[in-house]
Design a binder for these strands. Structure first.
Length: 450
RNA sequence: UCCGCAGUAGCUCAGCUGGUUAGAGCAUCUGACUGUUAAUCAGAGGGUCCGGGGUUCAAGUCCCUGCUGCGGAGCCA
């Protein structure tokens, strides 16, 4: 592709240049030598290629430069592209010239193994490693799939504010900051309420941005700062919402299968499992799920007042924890939507099921292979008085939510939406062990550096 | 926040029932080698045994305490 600003070749394009002279710009991923031969593994962001320097064939200066190269030194390499069966990418470069930009010294991340703490402290450098490189490319593909999916279906991007005056859901803890003379402001934990207002203006919208939770969660599924995409649709009921969520997740996964095959192979991901992620997904109500837990003897660990733990039959009305969700998903090899949860465990803005006021029209999507919850959504309460009653019942301030209540006074309609956690989705697709690997610079309860 | 585990060379770790000079591999530096890809071979340098206190003739090892990190739970996407 001709370009005004890209005057050099990238590793990705090398197979189109066999037999030609090219100049590559990148970093030394690794170097080995054998006598008069020096092998430089060059990484340039698009991929990696081995470059071969044979001392008798080049200037003495080039041979010396090649020998002096250290891991992560930056350089430009000029040479001839040659098809090479032994090379992983099928090509090698016979070097004729080297221009060193900077010689790195004592790069801390070696080709050997490292501990998590060490790698996290060097996250800014860890991102250069093959595995992290592959994960970040999948992440970029997931984000593109998300945008394409909604943009191609007539949804409008309507970003929600990050600084907010109050909580969307009373439960979670919020990051707090001073806001001039207006008192406290909080970092958003969901753009949903604003997405609802946007949907009443534009019909079908989505908001996409970072969200913040000051919960002291310490698990491999939690970050304090994570990205969430939240579509909101006027005139959608819960079934429409679930259908859309299904289409959406199928689209993202299949997009990655198609466009990130190389990356997924690098990660050792079993792609056949992702290929199975096609509609229809499984669906069951909360009540059916509880019955399944009973039938399969999955118990709930309950803490006693004296601190000891006992196992009891899972009581209807309790929210599922990670052990229950994991048990439920063992039977499925594609996602499962669980719907109609008990009113008490869900947020105030969810609409009660007209057929059973004990439950709300909520739905969560659980991903297979232990990935857990990736989507939470619901049909929203569209009746002014019912919503007000829920707000007061939760002990929330009517004044804070006046603008939100207004949406039910001026042309209220049935509407629904959901939120998908980008990092949880990338974690599932890449098969990463821990969520900290799937965002460039993770923010966690005990880590904010780098 | 609660429960459990760990901290020894730049990195990953070993170090027995407390015992005299603290170990390996990788990384780094020097040298050899025309096909390496976690190269190989020969050599060299490299330590506040997490901090503080205690027990003991003697502590990397035992006890107390603090700090840091890891795994899990709860909360959630």
């Amino acid at each position: 592709m001709a370009s005004r600003y890209l005057s050099y070749t990238t590793v990705e394009q090398l197979h189109q240049h066999i037999g030609q002279a090219v100049t590559l710009h990148g970093w030394v991923q690794d170097k080995t030598g054998k006598g008069k031969l020096t092998f430089i593994k060059l990484r340039d962001g698009s991929g990696m290629v081995q470059c071969v320097v044979f001392a008798p064939n080049v200037d003495e200066r080039v041979a010396t430069d090649a020998k002096s190269l250290s891991q992560e030194s930056s350089l430009a390499i000029t040479g001839t592209v040659r098809a090479e069966e032994r090379a992983p990418g099928g090509v090698e470069v016979d070097v004729t010239d080297i221009k060193v930009y900077q010689l790195a010294s004592e790069y801390p991340i070696t080709p050997k193994e490292h501990g998590v703490e060490f790698l996290m402290e060097h996250r800014h450098l860890w991102l250069r490693s093959t595995r992290q490189h592959a994960i970040m490319r999948v992440r970029a593909a997931v984000v593109k799939a998300i945008r394409d999916f909604f943009d191609e279906r007539g949804f409008k991007l309507m970003d929600s504010p990050i600084l907010t005056p109050n909580a969307c859901e009373g439960t979670s803890t919020l990051f707090e900051t001073e806001y001039f003379d207006l008192g406290k402001a909080y970092l958003t934990q969901s753009g949903q309420l604003y997405a609802e207002a946007s949907a009443m203006a534009l019909g079908r919208v989505y908001t996409f941005g970072p969200t913040f939770r000051a919960e002291k969660s310490k698990t491999r599924r939690h970050l304090t700062e994570f990205w969430m995409v939240e579509p909101e649709m006027a005139y959608f009921d819960l079934n429409d919402d679930m259908d859309l969520a299904e289409d959406f997740v199928e689209y993202i996964v299949q997009y990655c299968v198609q466009h990130c095959r190389k990356e997924l192979e690098t990660l050792g991901r079993d792609i056949s499992k992702l290929e199975k992620v096609k509609r229809p997904f499984h669906r069951m109500s909360y009540t059916e799920a509880v019955e399944w837990l009973h039938a399969n003897n999955v118990k709930l660990n309950k803490k006693q007042p004296d601190g000891s733990e006992i196992q009891i039959d899972f009581p209807w009305g309790e929210d599922f924890g990670a052990p229950q969700e994991e048990a439920l998903m063992t039977q499925f090899d594609k996602p499962c939507i669980i719907h109609r949860y008990p009113t008490e465990v869900k947020a105030f803005y969810m609409k009660r099921d007209p057929e059973n006021p004990q439950v709300v029209l909520a739905m969560d999507m659980l991903a297979p292979e232990g990935a857990g919850e990736i989507i939470g959504g619901s049909q929203r309460e569209d009746d002014h008085d019912a919503l007000l009653e829920r707000i007061l019942h939760e002990g929330l301030s009517q004044e804070d939510f006046q603008w939100y209540l207004d949406l039910r006074k001026f042309g209220s309609v049935p509407h629904s939406g959901f939120g998908l956690g980008v990092e949880r989705t990338v974690k599932w697709i890449t098969g990463a062990e821990h969520i900290r690997e799937v965002i460039p610079f993770p923010r966690m309860i005990y880590r904010i550096v780098p």
